[in-house]
């Protein structure tokens, strides 16, 4: 059987979530591998959630929100951007595969872009294969319960 990656998308309520909704209402098709988690703002997306997603079995992650200057709360995405810049460098240094974490800005009007982001990410993760390196340590912790 072909490998079907599990992808978790952390998106903000005001732009990307609405954008993803538009993808659906515009009848644009995209892979079903993505599970969307809706947040009030990208500023709310704690870096720990990303680690938890990998821990819980995700093979890839999408983080997406409003374009700079478009934040519903004025500056949430600016703060988030700074955090990701540092976090990405740090996890790369400890050997976590940063190719598996995709960041994007998708506005509420960009339904087509959302489909593109998901399709590309799914394709990339399919190439990379399951993230067994990380899942192994999670399994060894809970005795194979996951």
């Amino acid at each position: 059987m072909d490998f079907e990656p599990k992808i978790v998308a952390f998106v903000c309520n005001w732009c990307t979530y609405a954008g993803a909704d538009l993808t659906g209402t515009s009848r644009i098709k995209y892979p079903v591998n993505v599970r969307i988690v809706r947040f009030p703002c990208t500023g709310r997306i704690d870096f720990m959630l990303l680690l938890k997603a990998f821990d819980e079995g995700a093979d890839g992650i999408i983080v997406s929100g409003c374009h700079p200057n478009d934040c519903h709360y004025t500056s949430g995405n600016f703060h988030a951007r700074r955090r990701w810049m540092i976090f990405r460098n740090l996890i790369d240094f400890v050997g976590i595969d940063i190719r598996r974490v995709a960041f994007s800005w998708v506005s509420a009007a960009e339904g087509a872009k959302w489909a593109e982001v998901v399709t590309d990410t799914v394709g990339k993760i399919k190439e990379l294969g399951p993230y067994s390196e990380y899942h192994q340590i999670s399994k060894s912790f809970d005795g194979g319960a996951k």
Binding site: F78, R81, R82, W84, S104
Partner: peptide
Amino acid sequence: NVLSSFKPNDNETFIR
């Protein structure tokens, strides 16, 4: 603090 402040033109290369 770096993470509780920002500049609108912070420059990154990885966000699509």
